[in-house]
């Protein structure tokens, strides 16, 4: 305690309650200004990066895609929806993947659910005309390094989703046991994570895919570039 008594800062007379409140108020105010300043400065870069990651993921899970557009249910019809760019917006969306002429070639459907350790976030491509899943990428996961993270690193597993029939339903089978076009082989040593991915995709598929319109009935990509998230990405 002797060190504290020597400190010139604390030998001053007791501060009154007003000074205490004023100190914390000023600290809070300055802190707010600094954080909001940093947030506004970094936001465009952060959003551009997120859009770029999303675009890359959509183009990977729907082969041949050249453009994308956010789609959401408005009543009974699926329609293009501008990206509100805000957080906390939890309207379920899918991304329409388009060819160069603006015609839909498939959907990229984001989904998430519980993994072995934490949430797994993924996106998968769906071709409504062929009723097939055409690709899958795990975007977010904290699965065990060396074991569960094979759902990202094991190319055999990742490409097991490239041409997967959904009739009658998708199934997970043991490694090396694939016998039908609607089966995916689990990763040996990462069964729980493989099952989690299958569960997430099956759940999302039941919610989305059955209702998604065929290519010809889907909304076309709007020509006005303003509504397209792809525009936000710097070339």
């Amino acid at each position: 305690m002797s060190a504290r008594q020597l400190d010139p800062g604390t030998t001053e007379p007791e501060a009154g309650p007003l000074k205490l409140v004023a100190t914390l108020t000023i600290a809070g105010l300055l802190s707010g200004v600094a954080i909001v300043g940093a947030w506004q400065t970094t936001r465009p870069t952060i959003l551009a990066y997120q859009a770029q990651v999303l675009k890359a993921a959509v183009f990977k899970v729907v082969p041949g895609a050249q453009g994308l557009q956010r789609l959401a249910w408005q009543g009974q019809t699926l329609a293009a929806e501008a990206d509100p760019g805000g957080e906390g917006d939890d309207t379920p969306v899918v991304y329409g993947a388009y060819d160069a002429s603006g015609a839909l070639i498939g959907y990229a459907i984001p989904a998430e659910g519980a993994g072995f350790q934490d949430k797994i976030g993924l996106i998968y491509g769906y071709d409504p005309d062929a009723s097939k899943i055409v690709g899958l990428r795990v975007l977010d996961s904290r699965e065990t390094p060396g074991l569960g993270d094979k759902i990202i690193k094991d190319q055999e597993f990742v490409h097991g989703w490239d041409d997967l029939s959904t009739t009658p339903s998708i199934e997970l089978v043991a490694h090396g046991k694939k016998a039908a076009p609607n089966q995916v082989e689990a990763i040996s040593g990462a069964t729980i994570s493989s099952k989690a991915v299958m569960r997430i995709v099956s759940g999302s598929y039941a919610d989305w895919a059955e209702r998604l319109p065929k290519r010809a009935d889907a909304p076309r990509q709007e020509i006005t570039p303003a509504a397209s998230p792809a525009k936000e990405v710097a070339p």
């Binding site: 300055l30 970094t42 952060i46």
Partner: peptide, 30 residues
């Protein structure tokens, strides 16, 4: 150090630290 009353020093330090952490967080994310 001469302006921060000792009764609220911990709260003030935490506000200062939290501010720099938030800035570092955003800059790293960008």
């Amino acid at each position: 150090r001469h302006f921060i009353p000792k009764q609220v020093r911990i709260s003030t330090y935490i506000v200062i630290i939290a501010t720099f952490v938030s800035v570092a967080d955003l800059v790293l994310q960008a």
